[in-house]
Nucleic acid binder design. Structure first.
Lengths: 201, 201
DNA sequence: TCAAGCGGAATGAACATTCCGTCCAAAATA
DNA sequence: TATTTTGGACGGAATGTTCATTCCGCTTGA
């Protein structure tokens, strides 16, 4: 019985992810969600107290998957630059290949939920105590390859362009091929690295 | 009579800007909007066909103000780098000092309105025909100081970090002082400039 | 006197959430 | 083993609320 329960909950969450991504939280009625999941409206409320709880649980799941994807294949023995490029590339690949997850997260972070969540995260994780793999990398950068800048600025320089370009890609304005992704990753690196002599390493 | 009309319309739009920015389109009922503008609900509909039209007109106005602010004090005889830094700085200053406008635009671009608007803009303005001052600058860069990359990538590298940092600032996670802004602008420049020899110019 | 401008009650639609009757698998009973 | 009981899982109709929008009578300046 437990596995059945789990399965139905998963089905509902999957349907919710798609619907929320495509129509937005506000334009995705519970009735339509139930229909898409091939389930009665009442059943949705068996697994989730209300719409908010559904959104929160979905966020937890999606965020976890993203975190896993980002740190995949990152070899800590490599240079800061190499690690950075791998992280960025992972991030782009995951989000490009999971448009529903991307759109969901975008919405989540732009809703009242997200603002609080973000503040919460930042207050919890200060300095070296960061869970964010990018921040960890910057903080442990013994080779001094990265500019000495406030955390949020580094964060913005590294992440901002990626999210921006992904939005364009989702809207069908760009084709995100591997060459483009490489350019992006290197551009982000140039933004945060200390530029000494010669072209980027 | 015209000036009176105009004034009342302006009052409504101002109230709408604040309310939309603070509560979001969906959580800003027309009744509350009317209250804030000290106007009857019915009167709002005298000036705007419906809520959507109000949002669209607001967008037009806000976007216009932003465009004006961005190109302020940009001296076309200066180097590409100098012009770029000025543009970025203008952008940050305007949005930092106009949080309502910033939040409104963020929402607009993340709503169904915005997606279409963006596609529309991009399809209309191809290549050298760009209205976007950043794109114009990149396109007319005879000194070859800027990387040769697809438009959307340059756009992302230049804009992405700025918007990202501004979001943090609005959430009260960073204090956006002048030093920080300068770091940001230079970081963005590093991301798109061709790195030859020595530190960034 | 009479429009044009206005305010706000009234209307209707869209939802989130609740409620309740049905179904069914498995435990209890004979 | 055959029959009955039971309780959780379900579906979807019913409910109550929250708006956007409309309608209508009042006010006021010409």
């Amino acid at each position: 019985m437990l596995p059945v329960k789990k399965t139905k909950q998963k089905i509902i969450m999957q349907a919710a992810l798609e619907l929320f991504a495509e129509q937005g939280f506000h334009d995705a009625p519970m009735s339509q969600l139930a229909e898409q999941a091939q389930v009665g409206v009442g059943s949705v409320y068996r697994y989730f107290k209300d719409k908010n709880e559904l959104i929160e649980k979905l966020y937890f799941e999606v965020d976890e998957a993203l975190q896993m994807a980002i740190i995949k294949n990152v070899d800590q023995t490599l240079s800061t630059r190499q690690q950075f490029l791998q992280l960025i590339t992972n991030l782009i690949h995951f989000l490009r290949d999971h448009p529903h997850e991307f759109k969901f997260l975008e919405q989540y972070y732009h809703s009242p939920f997200g603002i609080d969540k973000k503040r919460e995260k930042l207050l919890l994780e200060n300095g070296a105590n960061q869970k964010n793999p990018f921040m960890q990398l910057f903080f442990s950068d013994k080779t001094k390859a990265v500019k000495t800048l406030p955390g949020p600025v580094l964060h913005a320089l590294a992440f901002g362009p990626v999210l921006f370009l992904l939005r364009d890609a989702m809207a069908g304005l760009v084709e995100l091929d591997d060459a483009l992704i490489e350019h992006m990753a290197k551009g982000c690196w140039d933004a945060i690295r200390i530029s000494t002599a010669g072209p980027a390493q």
